[in-house]
């Protein structure tokens, strides 16, 4: 007689309870996810477009609408890369990715018509240490590649002077090294991407 209520209370009820809680939680999060999905993917698209504009050295207003306007006006989408018209002819904007310290670093590199000189560079995504390696996102770091030609040499933060020198990030030596490898293969990769290999 007593066995059945115990069995229910000890085995069935916890299972049922967990099942219902899980179901409700998933329903709630899935609902909110679906409600905000459009906004989230629009944000992501906007981030990528902003990176392309920055790499191409195109000026734009930093709002979702401003980014879209500048992108539609100035950027030509090619197969696997982008182009824009700079003062010195066509600029090629190439998506690149490579390993970082913790995860993949994805960047956009803008190259002048000579396919060697950088017109700009922007980070699309990275997972480096916040406050240290993640400083590759800061504009002083990405901006210093502009007008320079690979291969680059990393020097101590704040001491870059020559045409191929860039400042490394203090406290993020490994991230800086990975980033250097990535930018140094940009010119070669650009050739093969544009030739469609």
């Amino acid at each position: 007689m007593n066995a059945q209520p115990t069995f229910y209370r000890e085995r069935i009820y916890p299972l049922l309870f967990m099942f219902i809680v899980t179901f409700l939680c998933i329903l709630l999060t899935a609902g909110i996810y679906l409600l905000t999905q459009d906004r989230a993917s629009a944000n992501e698209l906007s981030f990528t477009r902003r990176a392309i504009l920055q790499a191409g050295g195109v000026s734009f207003e930093n709002t979702t609408a401003g980014i879209e306007l500048a992108f539609n006006e100035k950027i030509v989408v090619e197969d696997g890369y982008y182009t824009t018209q700079g003062p010195e002819g066509t600029r090629y904007i190439i998506p690149l990715q490579g390993p970082g310290l913790w995860g993949t670093i994805a960047i956009m590199v803008g190259l002048e018509e000579d396919m060697k000189t950088f017109s700009g560079l922007a980070i699309v995504s990275q997972n480096e240490t916040p406050g240290l390696g993640a400083r590759i996102e800061e504009s002083w770091f990405t901006g210093q590649f502009q007008g320079k030609t690979a291969p680059f040499v990393m020097v101590e933060e704040g001491t870059a002077s020559a045409q191929n020198e860039v400042d490394a990030i203090t406290g993020a030596t490994r991230t800086s090294e990975y980033f250097l490898n990535l930018t140094n293969r940009a010119a070669d990769d650009a050739q093969s991407i544009i030739r469609g290999e």
Binding site: M18, V21, T22, C25, L28, T29, I32, Y33, T36, R39, A40, N43, E44, S46, F47
Partner: peptide, 20 residues
């Protein structure tokens, strides 16, 4: 854990959509 995780995921989703 399930309930805490749910609220955290909500924070994550909302931040991603409104404060990217």
């Amino acid at each position: 854990t399930m309930i805490i995780a749910t609220f955290v995921i909500i924070v994550d989703i909302v931040l991603k959509a409104f404060y990217p």
